[in-house]
């Protein structure tokens, strides 16, 4: 995404806070639109935010958010797993913003470690958004996806668990029948 098109207007910018609240991010994007730093079409999904933006289109929740992410020219998202995974998979430029109001410091921790496996743009607070806009880029993986390995392991455990459970029932039944025969 060339920086000029973001500032020049005509593109679609999607802002999302997922199922959470992140008033600071919505307020900052609203301010950038109001002051003319962002002149593009902005669509915001504001979740449980207390305040509503005045200078951009917005909805609380959107079932078609994934499709909108695929259509957007730039995605600005909070650093929740769902939104970050979707932003990466959309293949579009995005900026992840840490939401400090969430439990502990886990979003920052998450982005720091994700940076070791993926190349992407993220910022520590919404205040840095304006300067980060030109750096937005699609994520590229630095190493191979390991989801297959994780799921294979879980599948093995599920199968083993089912076997253990059925053996347990057999033992219980045998225990009951032997107790009955003794009685």
């Amino acid at each position: 995404m060339p920086a000029g098109s973001i500032f020049g207007g005509g593109d679609l910018i999607l802002v999302t806070v997922g199922t959470q609240f992140f008033d600071e991010l919505i307020a900052e994007v609203d301010r950038l639109v109001a002051t003319g730093v962002i002149r593009d079409d902005v669509y915001a999904q504001i979740g449980l935010c207390k305040s509503e933006p005045r200078h951009m289109r917005h909805v609380r929740f959107d079932r078609t958010l994934h499709d909108r992410m695929c259509e957007a020219d730039l995605i600005i998202t909070h650093a929740g797993t769902g939104c970050v995974i979707e932003a990466i998979e959309s293949g579009n430029p995005f900026i992840a913003v840490v939401n400090d109001s969430k439990a502990g410091d886990h979003q920052r921790e998450f982005l720091r470690v994700l940076e070791t496996t993926h190349d992407f743009c993220w910022i520590e607070s919404p205040a840095k958004l304006a300067s980060a806009l030109p750096d937005a880029r699609p994520a590229s993986a630095r190493q191979e996806n390991s989801v297959g390995q994780l799921c294979d392991d879980i599948t093995r455990e599920l199968m083993q668990s089912s076997r253990v459970q059925s053996r347990g029932w057999v033992r219980r039944l045998l225990g009951r029948s032997s107790a009955a025969s003794v009685g």
Partner: peptide, 10 residues
């Protein structure tokens, strides 16, 4: 939310 994306992937 994120929980859905993760459990869906698995």
């Amino acid at each position: 939310g994120g929980w859905y994306r993760e459990i869906l992937k698995i």
